[in-house]
Amino acid sequence: MLEARLEQANLLKKVVDAIKDLVQDCNFDCNDSGVALQAMDNSHVALVSMMLKAESFSPFRCDRNIALGINLTSLMKVLRCAQNEDILTLKAEDAPDVVNLVFESSESDRLSEYDIKLMDIDQEHLGIPETEYAATITMPSAEFQRICRDLMALSESVAIEATKDGVKFSCSGDIGNGAVTLRSHTNVEKPDLNVEIALSEPVALTFSLKYLVNFCKASGLSSTVKLCLSNEVPLLVEYGLASNSYLRFYLAPKIGD
């Protein structure tokens, strides 16, 4: 059986809220290492990969592998019934028909319980190779969100170019062009505002802004975001969570000109 207690229901609520417009029906794969999810959007352009490690829960118990097939719209309806500060416990039997969610208020004796019916989801699982990326950019998640939103006003796609001088986000559209360049930057007082560029070779790739703006819905989960790029491979956008848990998005680049 599965029994996993999250100190803050809000974490799962934010994760599901961030991915529910990209993917609809997902298997939450539970085993003794934690709860994982991998799902592609219908057009096979973007992929969501979530890992909530066992250490993110206290306690965490999962005796055998259980796949919980859940419709995210349904899950969101139930998660909206939780207060942000509520403690959330997920429970499921070994061959479950439902997943049980219990919300407990830390301040009152209120306890609410919901069951969500599970679905049989035959999901394509992709093998994502371990990649040594040519460029890794760590930056404030709010800054990345702002750049994507700003450039989307002009164009449907953005070129991301990383060189030793910095990282340039540029676009061109019917009304004109736009570009934002960031250089490595260290803010001793507020390290969350740092921009770090680790580069082994220059990279230039073009991506659909519609997807990037969608990924940025995860900005509330982490003050920083990591962009990992290599020429001619999908972009990795990673939001790190506590206890080495993460929410990752992969996006296939645009091809040709």
């Binding site: 096979h44 394509e124 699982h125 093998g127 296939a252 645009k254």
Partner: peptide, 14 residues
């Protein structure tokens, strides 16, 4: 602009 790449051509099915 060019075409949109597909993840299936980068990542193999498990």
């Amino acid at each position: 602009g060019g075409g949109q790449g597909n993840l299936m051509s980068f990542f193999g099915m498990k």
